[in-house]
Structures are given as structure tokens and as C-alpha cells.
Amino acid sequence: METCVEIGKVNLKYHLSRHLLIAAAFLVMSPLLISVRNLEPAQTAQSLEMYAALIGIILLVPIFLPDQDKNIRDLTAAKYTPALKVQMVRLAESFIFLVLLLGAFTLYLKTGGCEFPVLEMYAGVLSEAFFLGGLGIAAYGLSDNVIIGYMIPIVYYATNFSGDKYLKNFYLFSMMQDRYEPKIWLACAGVVLICAGLGVRQIKR
């Protein structure tokens, strides 16, 4: 447990803080870019799904970034603490901040006069953010390239603008259509993708 705390502290200080700042700034900027006051449920869903959920990419994808350098990876592989444990701690830390930031943003929308089912939409946007982050982690783990880790979820996000004809239960903007079942699919897919990303990373090591 102490080791995990130490890993978390170092990760927060040297790596996660930058991404946390960017994610927070992204949400703070929201009034300049999107509507955040007096929205009806469909419009609130739009702000959450099309904007806020993107911080999942910002916070979750970079969990392998500290080990980008192969020499560092070889060094950490020789240590007693398994690399997987370190990555899980980073993932957990990123996820906690994702939960907090999205929670704060959802509450901010509520206090801004938006009418919407708070818990359902919060769970929905969290699922979407988790899925996008998981997609990025899987892509990063497979390719060992952080740019590809960002590219795949962003391109996936862009394809959703064409509608849900092909994406069905993996359509990101379902809450705008008052549908919540796809969020369950997205959350499960996120878990699978993260496991795949971590697994591939261990095998490649």
C-alpha cells in the first residue's frame, strides 16, 4: 500500500499534473466554447457527450508515457515492483481525477439551471470518457506510440458525427437521443480495451 501511495505521488508530481491541468483548463474553457446554462436535457447531453467526455482521452491515454523511453522501461522491469502494478496505480489515479472532474462539471451544469437526470447523465458521460480513454490505451499499448494513442479515439469521436447507423451500441452521442443502454456497452468495452492495452504492454515487454 505504501508503495502504491509513493508511486501515485511521483506520478502526480511529474506526469499526471500536466494532463490534469490541461483537462481542468479544457473544462474551465467550456463556457467560451459551448452552452452551459439553462439547457434542456438533450442540450445538456450534447455538452457532456460532445465536449466533457473528451477529458477521458487527456487523462487516461498517457499512462504509458513515463515509460516511453525503452531504457527506462528496461530499468523498471528489473525492479521488484512489477511494471503492471505501477501502470495500474497510474490508471487508478487518472480514473479518480476523471471521476472528480466530470462530477464537478456535471454539478456545474446543474447549478447553471440545466434540467437533466443528473446521476444517469453523469454515469453516461463517465462511461463514454472511460471508453475513449480505453480505446486510446489499447491503441498506445499495441503501437507503442502515444500519437496513435490519441489518434484512434479522436478519429472514433469524429466518426460519430455521421450518426449511429454503423456504430449502434457503441455510438457516443446516444444520450442526446435519450438512450442510455449504449453507455453500458461503452463502459464494458472500456474495461476490455484497457485490459487489452495493459496486457499487450506486458507481453511486448
Partner: peptide
């Protein structure tokens, strides 16, 4: 639609 997002103003 200041940035493409719907906004209803009273």
C-alpha cells in the same frame, strides 16, 4: 448557436 451548440436565451 455561438459555437454551434444550442443556447436558448430569455
Amino acid at each position: 448557436y455561438p459555437m454551434g451548440f444550442y443556447k436558448s436565451v430569455k
